[in-house]
């Protein structure tokens, strides 16, 4: 995305945010609406059922879910430490942050996949109940975002080899960081909705 930007000219009435941050926030509003749509459907389907979860379905592994929430939050923290290092011109620490964030992100997605396979093994089939379908669709939509995020983080960790950070790279890292924090934040919200409520 970095090469696409024509930065706002300094003499123009450019807003408080540079293009890349503004565009990312705008894009994440669309992402928010996607999850609002899905969670909205979950709420409707949930209150249409006399009992939620329906009797006889295996329960979600709360421990694994909680652990995984911690994983993605740690990943966000690692990334933020990297971004702070970038502002302090510490390219090595930046790369460390990107790598840790990406690895933790990969762990998150792997644990989500493990969780799905455990649940399918216990008989929570995708199409069986609306309880299962909504869980799989919502966590799956989120995992697709997380997959994109950790691959992107990993690619940047590999590309950032020099002792300096180019402007274009810096912009891309900022965009990716906003996206990754969004993925983490959405998961915290989904964790509450899917596991706790």
């Amino acid at each position: 995305m970095e090469s696409m930007a024509i930065p706002g000219r300094p003499d123009g009435p450019a807003g408080a945010l540079p293009n890349h941050r503004l565009a990312t926030f705008v894009f994440l509003m669309a992402g928010t609406m996607l999850f609002i749509g899905l969670v909205g459907a979950l709420i409707v389907l949930r209150y249409a059922m006399p009992q939620w979860p329906p009797p006889g379905v295996p329960s979600l592994p709360l421990g694994l879910g909680t652990f995984n929430t911690a994983v993605i939050l740690l990943s966000s923290i690692a990334l933020q430490r990297g971004v702070r290092a970038m502002r302090l011109l510490d390219a090595a620490a930046l790369r460390r942050g990107l790598t840790f964030a990406s690895v933790l992100g990969a762990l998150f997605v792997a644990l989500q996949a493990l969780q799905w396979s455990i649940l399918i093994g216990r008989g929570l089939s995708f199409a069986g109940t609306t309880y299962a379908s909504t869980f799989y669709v919502i966590s799956g939509a989120h995992a697709a975002h997380a997959l994109t995020g950790f691959l992107w983080l990993g690619a940047m960790a590999l590309r950032q080899r020099q002792a300096w950070v180019t402007d274009a790279m810096q912009r891309q890292i900022e965009v990716c960081a906003l996206f990754w924090h969004f993925v983490g934040l959405v998961w915290v919200f989904l964790y509450v909705v899917l596991y706790l409520l």
Binding site: V26, A30, G37, G40, A41, A127, S133, V137
Partner: peptide, 16 residues
């Protein structure tokens, strides 16, 4: 921006 993602979610569910 705000309406299309909701269409995406409902069309996804319909496809499933």
């Amino acid at each position: 921006l705000l309406a299309t993602p909701v269409l995406a979610s409902v069309m996804g569910m319909l496809l499933f």
